[in-house]
Amino acid sequence: MLVLEAEGFAHHSSRTDRVRDCRRYTELTVWGWAILRFSWEDVMLHPERVRWAIHAWLERRAGRPVPPPPPA
Protein backbone atom coordinates (compact mmCIF):
# COMPACT_ATOMS: atom_id res chain seq x y z
CA MET A 1 0.00 0.00 0.00
CA LEU A 2 1.85 3.00 -1.32
CA VAL A 3 0.77 6.58 -1.92
CA LEU A 4 2.79 8.85 -4.22
CA GLU A 5 2.20 12.54 -3.70
CA ALA A 6 3.51 15.53 -5.63
CA GLU A 7 3.61 18.62 -3.44
CA GLY A 8 3.20 22.06 -4.91
CA PHE A 9 2.52 25.48 -3.46
CA ALA A 10 -0.87 25.81 -5.12
CA HIS A 11 -2.64 23.45 -2.73
CA HIS A 12 -1.01 24.66 0.47
CA SER A 13 -1.86 28.32 0.27
CA SER A 14 -3.80 28.48 3.53
CA ARG A 15 -3.60 27.19 7.06
CA THR A 16 -6.74 25.11 6.46
CA ASP A 17 -5.13 23.44 3.43
CA ARG A 18 -2.05 22.55 5.47
CA VAL A 19 -4.11 21.14 8.37
CA ARG A 20 -6.21 19.03 5.97
CA ASP A 21 -3.09 17.67 4.28
CA CYS A 22 -1.42 16.79 7.60
CA ARG A 23 -4.54 15.01 8.83
CA ARG A 24 -4.83 13.01 5.62
CA TYR A 25 -1.17 12.03 5.84
CA THR A 26 -1.57 10.92 9.46
CA GLU A 27 -4.74 8.93 8.75
CA LEU A 28 -3.15 7.11 5.80
CA THR A 29 -0.12 6.27 7.96
CA VAL A 30 -2.32 4.98 10.78
CA TRP A 31 -4.03 2.63 8.31
CA GLY A 32 -0.68 1.24 7.17
CA TRP A 33 -0.05 3.16 3.98
CA ALA A 34 3.46 4.25 3.07
CA ILE A 35 3.61 7.75 1.63
CA LEU A 36 6.35 9.05 -0.64
CA ARG A 37 6.09 12.81 -1.03
CA PHE A 38 7.85 14.66 -3.80
CA SER A 39 8.25 18.32 -4.60
CA TRP A 40 6.86 19.60 -7.87
CA GLU A 41 10.45 20.44 -8.84
CA ASP A 42 11.62 16.86 -8.39
CA VAL A 43 8.67 15.42 -10.31
CA MET A 44 9.11 17.80 -13.22
CA LEU A 45 12.85 18.52 -13.22
CA HIS A 46 14.46 15.54 -11.49
CA PRO A 47 12.35 12.46 -12.27
CA GLU A 48 15.37 10.23 -11.60
CA ARG A 49 14.95 11.07 -7.88
CA VAL A 50 11.32 10.00 -8.01
CA ARG A 51 12.22 6.76 -9.81
CA TRP A 52 14.97 6.10 -7.27
CA ALA A 53 12.64 6.60 -4.29
CA ILE A 54 10.01 4.24 -5.68
CA HIS A 55 12.62 1.64 -6.59
CA ALA A 56 14.35 1.99 -3.19
CA TRP A 57 11.03 1.59 -1.36
CA LEU A 58 10.27 -1.59 -3.31
CA GLU A 59 13.77 -2.98 -2.68
CA ARG A 60 13.58 -2.28 1.06
CA ARG A 61 10.13 -3.83 1.26
CA ALA A 62 11.51 -6.96 -0.44
CA GLY A 63 14.35 -7.12 2.10
CA ARG A 64 17.02 -6.16 -0.38
CA PRO A 65 19.64 -3.41 0.00
CA VAL A 66 18.56 0.08 -0.94
CA PRO A 67 20.57 1.57 -3.80
CA PRO A 68 22.22 4.94 -3.19
CA PRO A 69 20.27 7.99 -4.29
CA PRO A 70 21.21 9.81 -7.46
CA PRO A 71 23.48 12.83 -7.06
CA ALA A 72 21.74 16.03 -6.00
Rank of each mutant, 00 (worst) to 15 (best):
C22H: 12
R23V: 11
R23F: 04
R24Q: 05
Y25Q: 08
E27G: 01
E27T: 08
E27R: 12
E27L: 11
E27S: 06
L28T: 03
L28V: 04
T29N: 10
T29L: 15
T29S: 14
T29E: 07
V30F: 04
W33D: 01
W33V: 04
A34R: 11
I35C: 11
I35Q: 09
L36K: 03
L36R: 04
L36M: 05
L36Y: 09
L36N: 01
R37S: 12
F38N: 03
F38H: 04
S39A: 10
S39R: 09
W40A: 13
W40D: 09
E41A: 11
E41Q: 09
D42E: 12
D42C: 00
V43L: 13
V43E: 02
V43W: 03
V43D: 03
M44R: 06
M44Y: 06
M44G: 00
L45G: 05
L45K: 09
H46L: 09
H46F: 09
H46Q: 15
P47I: 07
P47T: 09
E48C: 07
E48H: 13
E48M: 06
R49F: 02
R49H: 10
R49E: 01
V50L: 07
V50I: 12
V50D: 01
V50T: 02
V50K: 03
V50Y: 02
V50N: 02
R51M: 02
W52T: 08
W52H: 14
W52R: 06
A53G: 04
A53C: 05
A53V: 02
A53S: 14
A53Y: 01
A53W: 00
I54E: 01
I54K: 01
I54W: 04
W57H: 15
W57P: 00
L58V: 11
L58H: 13
L58E: 11
E59S: 12
E59Q: 15
E59G: 03
E59R: 15
R60E: 15
R60F: 07
R60V: 12
R60C: 10
R61N: 12
A62Q: 15
A62N: 15
A62T: 09
A62K: 13
A62W: 12
G63T: 14
G63Y: 14
G63I: 13
